[in-house]
């Protein structure tokens, strides 16, 4: 290339650079040109879902579909205002919220998509013995090991305070002694006081999740009905399972922003329940069932 050509190329690229940069920066900050050619400031919604292949409706109109592998949806170019949003997925109950969008801000939500139907699996107390059947003799039944193990979980005492190393590593969360009225998942602490469930973030302020949104202890749920027990929703720290005195089990999201809190019935009746990672175990009378949420 001749020096002249080089100089011309540099000048052209320089002008492209200085013309493109303000446009890209303004675009990335949320500025858009409206239909009447005015510069408007926009915001966005970010849905961090546990499910892929969902559809997002804004004010009743389909706005975005997540791919088969995409769990999160980012919707941009929304002018400030209050919007009714709805996230749907086949065979799941829709999740709805009214959200306030602000200019140059992205509102982050954690939709709780609950399956329409659950198919609990019974864990039988007794199962036929695997020993060879002797002729003309009745089948011998033995106690099911799985039943024994899960029942033991129901009887398990409160988790004791962990060792020094864990306490140091986990900070405040490491010092908590969990039990019937105190549940801990990561840095999210749930506590039951009377008929009210509170949530508190034990981690660093910089990592404070939006569904809690305060470093102070915050009421996450209360009800006119008596709450008999509670735990985290299987596999999540932003939702709770609440069992009322009538035996009904509900899933409730912790996020109380926008003065709206979604709750979904999971079971009409259970006498006891517990959550172990992704699985919900519950008793109906003497019968033990499990539901895998994974």
């Amino acid at each position: 290339m001749t020096p002249k050509k080089q100089l011309i190329t540099i000048i052209i690229l320089f002008f492209i650079f200085i013309s493109v940069i303000p446009l890209i920066i303004c675009y990335s900050m949320g500025y858009r040109i409206s239909a009447d050619f005015k510069i408007v400031e926009t915001g966005g919604i970010y849905l961090s879902s546990s499910e892929a292949d969902t559809s997002l409706y804004v004010n009743g109109k389909l706005k975005k579909k997540a791919g088969l592998m995409d769990r999160n949806i980012l919707l941009q170019n929304i002018t400030p205002g209050i919007y009714s949003i709805r996230l749907t997925k086949d065979e799941f109950r829709p999740w709805e919220k009214r959200i306030k969008i602000q200019e140059r801000q992205v509102e982050v939500c954690y939709p709780l998509l609950v399956p329409e139907k659950f198919e609990p699996l019974e864990i039988k107390k007794y199962i036929p013995s695997e020993k060879k059947k002797v002729k003309n003799k009745k089948v011998k039944y033995v106690i099911n090991d799985e039943y024994k193990e899960v029942s033991a979980l129901f009887k398990k005492p409160a988790k004791s305070s962990p060792g020094i190393l864990t306490r140091w590593y986990k900070g405040e969360a490491g010092k908590i002694k969990t039990g019937k009225n105190l549940k801990l998942k990561g840095n999210v602490l749930l506590s039951k006081e009377g008929n009210r469930i509170f949530v508190k973030w034990l981690g660093k302020e910089d990592h404070l999740p939006f569904f809690i949104n305060t470093m102070k202890k915050k009421q996450a749920f209360t009800s006119a009905s008596i709450i008999s027990s509670f735990d985290f929703y299987p596999g999540r720290d932003d939702a709770i399972l609440v069992r009322f005195s009538n035996g009904a089990l509900y899933a409730v999201e912790i996020d109380t922003r926008f003065e709206q809190q979604n709750a979904y019935i999971i079971l009409r009746y259970c006498s006891r329940f517990l959550v172990e990672e992704q699985t919900l175990f519950f008793f109906t009378g003497e019968y033990l069932y499990s539901i895998d949420f994974d």
């Binding site: 890209i24 949320g30 980012l74 941009q76 801000q105 992205v106 982050v108 990592h207």
Partner: peptide, 17 residues
């Protein structure tokens, strides 16, 4: 960037851009 920055449109568009 911390929580405050992570709620801005800029923070969400940065990876895409």
């Amino acid at each position: 960037g911390g929580r405050e920055f992570n709620t801005t449109t800029l923070s969400y568009t940065l990876p895409y851009i």
